[in-house]
C-alpha cells in the first residue's frame, strides 16, 4: 500500500507545482512530475512480488511473472510525454524571446 501512497504524493506535488508556480519552466517541471507519477502507477499495477520477466520457453518454467501489458503501455506513454515536454519547452523558449521573461504574470496579452 505504501508505494501507492507515495505515488499519490508525487502526483499531488506535480499538481501543486502547476497550480502555484509562476515560472513557465517550473510549470513544465510540475507536469513532468505528474506524468512520472502516473507512469509509476501503471507500472505498479502489473507488478508482483518475486515475479520475473514473462518469457516462456522449454528450459525455464515460470510460476509467477509480472504483467507485461502495462509496461508496453508505459513505453508508449513515455514517448508521448517526451514529445509534449519537448514541445512545451520549445514554446517556453519562444515565449521568453517575445516577452523577455518566464513569469506568467508578465505574459498576459490575452484577456477577457
Amino acid at each position: 500500500m505504501i508505494p501507492f501512497i507515495l505515488c499519490l504524493i508525487l502526483f499531488l506535488i506535480g499538481l501543486y507545482g502547476i497550480i502555484t508556480q509562476k515560472n513557465l519552466i517550473k510549470i513544465i517541471l510540475g507536469l513532468a512530475i505528474m506524468e512520472y507519477s502516473v507512469n509509476l502507477f501503471l507500472i505498479m499495477i502489473g507488478y508482483i512480488d518475486g515475479g520475473t520477466a514473462p518469457i516462456f520457453s522449454e528450459k525455464f518454467h515460470i510460476s509467477s511473472y509480472v504483467d507485461p501489458l502495462p509496461q508496453a503501455m508505459i513505453l508508449t506513454a513515455i514517448v508521448i510525454g517526451l514529445a509534449t515536454t519537448a514541445l512545451l519547452l520549445a514554446m517556453a523558449i519562444r515565449l521568453y524571446r517575445k516577452y523577455g521573461s518566464f513569469d506568467i504574470r508578465k505574459i498576459n496579452s490575452l484577456k477577457g
Binding site: 510549470i27 514541445l87 512545451l88 514554446m91 517556453a92 515565449l95 517575445k98 516577452y99 496579452s109 490575452l110
Partner: peptide, 15 residues
C-alpha cells in the same frame, strides 16, 4: 505573441 501564449495555456491544460 498571443498565439504562443494561447498555445502554452492550451498545452498545459491539454497535458
Amino acid at each position: 505573441k498571443h498565439q504562443l501564449e494561447a498555445s502554452f495555456k492550451y498545452q498545459v491544460l491539454g497535458c
